[in-house]
């Protein structure tokens, strides 16, 4: 193990991807204290709408999310890890998030993740982002910089974002539907291969964006997620913040 790896506070000056791989497990852990537990990944609104009611409909919800907003988030994260300008990426995230409610949520989660990351993997890039956007950068951008600070690479960051796009709804569905937790875990297991391919596609897009600019990032959308998120934000009574 190199000296750099023993001192993650230096932000891995040798470049991304030089740190211990197990840091990815920590970053992707649903129990990592970055505020995610209060968000359902759109599933609370989908449950109320009658669209998610069992393991099969949860799987469909997760698959749709993975290939749309999941891919976008993963590509943004990978681009941030690969060294693209975080402020440019933040604008690109705005442009790829039509719902004002989801833009607010993403910035709030970004701010919470930044707090956790600065405590766990201190790095100048994280401090600079906090200074530039004190009200919060978009969560995938922070995720990418956090991955870099942890010594992880763009593919790792893409994995974390892609997996998060499906793990959040699955966890929330267990609470909302009383869904069998084994069935929810099986949904995630069956999506593993697709998560792999989305992460790989996102990592390639992220590297491209780091070289050619954020305009090249993918921009698939899920209009129903946006519409439901806007409705959900106006509910007077809800379990999850989004």
């Amino acid at each position: 193990m190199s000296e750099v790896q023993q001192q993650p506070g230096r932000g891995f000056p040798g470049g991304y991807g030089q740190g211990p791989r197990a840091a990815l497990l920590l970053l992707a852990d649903g129990r990592f204290p970055a505020g995610g537990h209060a968000h359902s990944g759109g599933v609370e609104a989908a449950v109320a709408d009658g669209r998610v009611h069992d393991a099969a409909s949860l799987a469909a919800h997760c698959r749709g999310r993975l290939h749309t907003t999941g891919l976008v988030a993963a590509a943004l994260a990978a681009a941030a890890t690969a060294g693209a300008d975080p402020l440019g990426l933040d604008q690109a995230a705005d442009a790829r998030t039509p719902s004002a409610a989801l833009r607010t949520v993403s910035r709030r989660l970004g701010r919470q993740l930044l707090r956790a990351a600065r405590a766990v993997w201190p790095a100048p890039a994280l401090d600079d982002l906090a200074a530039a956007l004190p009200r919060g950068a978009h969560q995938p951008v922070v995720l990418g910089l956090a991955a870099a600070a942890a010594g992880l690479g763009p593919l790792d960051a893409a994995y974390a974002a892609a997996y998060e796009s499906v793990s959040a709804p699955a966890t929330a569905a267990v609470r909302l539907l009383g869904l069998d937790p084994f069935h929810a875990a099986a949904v995630l297991a069956r999506l593993a291969a697709e998560t792999d391919s989305v992460a790989a596609e996102a990592a390639a897009a992220g590297r491209r964006a780091a070289a050619d600019g954020p305009g090249t990032l993918p921009a698939p959308g899920a209009p129903l997620l946006d519409v439901l998120a806007e409705a959900h934000a106006a509910w007077p009574v809800r379990l999850f913040a989004s």
Binding site: R31, P33, A34, G35, G36, H37, A38, R108, R111, Q112, R115, A116, A241
Partner: peptide, 9 residues
């Protein structure tokens, strides 16, 4: 207790 970020904010 476990994830205090929203409360700290």
């Amino acid at each position: 207790r476990d994830d205090i970020s929203a409360n700290l904010e």
